Amino acid sequence: MGCGSCSSGGCGTGGAAVSGCGDKGSCGTGGCNKMNVFDWLSHMDVPAGQRFDVVEVKFKGGRKEYFRNINQLEFVTGDYVVCEMASGQHIGSVSLQGELVRLQMKRKNVAVNDDLHVIYRIATEKDLDKHTQAMAREMPTLYRTREIIREMKLNMKLSDVEFQSDNSKTTFYYSSEERVDFRELIKALASEFKVRIEMRQISLRQEASRLGGLGSCGRELCCSTWLTDFKNISTSAARYQNLSLNPAKLSGQCGRLKCCLNYELETYIDALRDIPTVEAPLKTKKGIATLQKTDIFKKIMWFGFDKDTNWYPVPISKVMEIIELNKNNIIPESLEVLTPEADKSQDKTPQRLNSDLENLDKKYSEEQKKKKKKKNRSNKNKNNTSKPQAPQAATPGK
């Protein structure tokens, strides 16, 4: 059902409707492809002699490499091309070309020299048939290799297999937390499949990126769609954002901390600069107030007393004033004593925890009562109209 170039399986010629666009998978934006790139310079015409002769080509699993277009072939994004490899040739799809490739190579520190492999030609139907046959061998090879690994009792997890288009080389992607001696495994695989074997160890994040899946947010994994750089993530990122340090909630499909913990981290760090550090409970004549939680963006800190189940919101400026008073051995009456009289008159009752939820429940119950009354009225009107009316008496004299 899928187009073969993405893990969503929602596009292609199988007749299934594509939810992202109305073009049934034939759109030119590449929105259904994994690691798609939008060429925002494609509308600019550059003379043929001034074009950057390096093309970015995408292979299975989102892997991208750069090849020289020495034959000055005309490509369209998505065209399948036959590329030179260290051993033989392989088929990939053009993902980017032009000046944006120069910027990508500069960002990834890839040098432009004669060591770059070249593109032979645009793939023909015969080339694509060979490529399809090579891809058809991947799943049986994956299952058979896993059986061999279990027989040899090797502590490694095989996640993916990629055949080169000319069937001259096979790359096995595996993950392991310890060093594995797979020399005997390579001999067994070479005699089993009659190809050149390459074992490539990948991290757990890279494994999740190749396999894909859905995250707890309900969307496809970031690492399998657009994220290419895996940065270090620590538990301090969760602490800055006041998240619960629950490994089950903070871990992603790969078993490591979620990459999205870093997305809003800088915003939280900037907002925390104005938040005072409460090293000890606040002392008031009403009792000792302990910090329960902090609303970072609203600049409000919630405190609770020992024998009181309610939490009381206090602005940050007032918290700093109470801290200064406690340092000078001055104990205020309560947390609200520093609040201006105008504010007191507006809100005499302290705001309780989850008051917004209580308001929503009250609003929902009122709406339900209104709907019920409206329904009863409509039922009464129906009953009145359905009753047969008594015949009117004839008027005398007519």
Rank of each mutant, 00 (worst) to 15 (best):
G15S: 00
A17V: 06
G20W: 01
C27N: 07
N36M: 07
P47Q: 05
R63K: 14
F67C: 02
I70A: 05
L73T: 02
G78H: 08
Q89H: 10
I91G: 05
G92K: 00
S95R: 09
Q97R: 06
R107E: 01
V110T: 11
V112Q: 08
V112L: 01
V112Y: 03
H131R: 05
Q133C: 04
M135L: 11
A136S: 15
R137I: 15
R137L: 12
R137S: 14
E138K: 13
Y143V: 11
T145V: 15
N155S: 13
M156N: 12
K157D: 06
E162T: 12
F163D: 01
K169M: 05
S175W: 09
V180L: 15
K194I: 08
R200G: 05
R205W: 00
R205E: 00
E207F: 10
G218V: 00
S236H: 08
R239E: 01
N242G: 08
P247M: 02
C254E: 01
G255N: 08
C259M: 06
L261D: 09
E264D: 04
E266N: 14
Y268A: 07
L272E: 04
K283D: 07
K285L: 08
I288M: 13
T290D: 14
F297E: 00
F303G: 04
T309N: 13
E324S: 14
S334A: 13
V337Y: 02
E341L: 13
D347E: 04
E358A: 14
N359V: 11
Y364M: 11
Q368E: 10
R377F: 01
K382T: 10
N384H: 09
K387I: 11
T395H: 10
